[in-house]
């Protein structure tokens, strides 16, 4: 849930914060204009791509930089599925639940991933390695059912391939 506060210590790396600062600076936002809010969503996108999630301290920093109340920013984050206030796994497993994937067994895939990793959709494994999410259509219906690991798309996935896909993640980790 986006509103739950994370009990673990939240560390915001200074170099990433500098990068976010530069990004916001380049936008040349007029802080007195009502239209400054128009930049909020793209800044949140940038922040999430840098930090992986949007913890409360980060929200407060953005709130001060844009002169938008923290409550409003928190409201925006909780409204949009794409934003998360809690950390995701290093390997974000997203099982597409668009209609095409649904009728071709997306639900069974999700169950299999949940069983395999012993977590539910929306949760992260205790080691912080994997998280599972049900995803709305990613428009690759021609390959249904589809699973996305971070930005890589796997098409025509069968329940039997679930183990292989997890193994793929382990390989990626070994390479990294």
């Amino acid at each position: 849930m986006a509103t739950e506060t994370d009990t673990r210590e939240i560390h915001i790396p200074a170099n990433l914060l500098d990068e976010l600062d530069r990004y916001i600076g380049d936008l040349k936002i007029d802080l007195n204009s009502e239209r400054r809010k128009g930049y909020l969503i793209q800044i949140l996108h940038k922040a999430q791509s840098l930090f992986g999630f949007l913890p409360e301290p980060l929200q407060i920093i953005i709130s001060q930089k844009l002169n938008i109340s923290h409550a409003e920013i928190s409201g925006v984050i909780s409204f949009y599925n794409y934003f998360t206030a809690t950390p995701k796994g290093r390997y974000r497993i997203s099982v597409c639940m668009g209609t095409a994937c649904f009728v071709k067994g997306g639900e069974k895939l999700l169950e299999e991933f949940e069983k395999f990793l012993e977590i539910k959709a929306g949760e992260v494994t205790p080691d912080g390695k994997y998280s599972i999410d049900a995803l709305r259509c990613i428009g690759a219906c021609g390959l249904a059912p589809v699973v996305m690991i971070n930005d890589k798309i796997y098409g025509n996935v069968t329940v039997k391939q679930v183990g292989d896909i997890i193994e793929d993640c382990l390989l990626m980790e070994a390479e990294a």
Binding site: M97, G98, T99, A100, F102, R136, C137, G139, C141
Partner: peptide
């Protein structure tokens, strides 16, 4: 914002 599931 093509959000309709199954449309691409």
């Amino acid at each position: 914002d093509e959000g309709d599931p199954g449309a691409f």
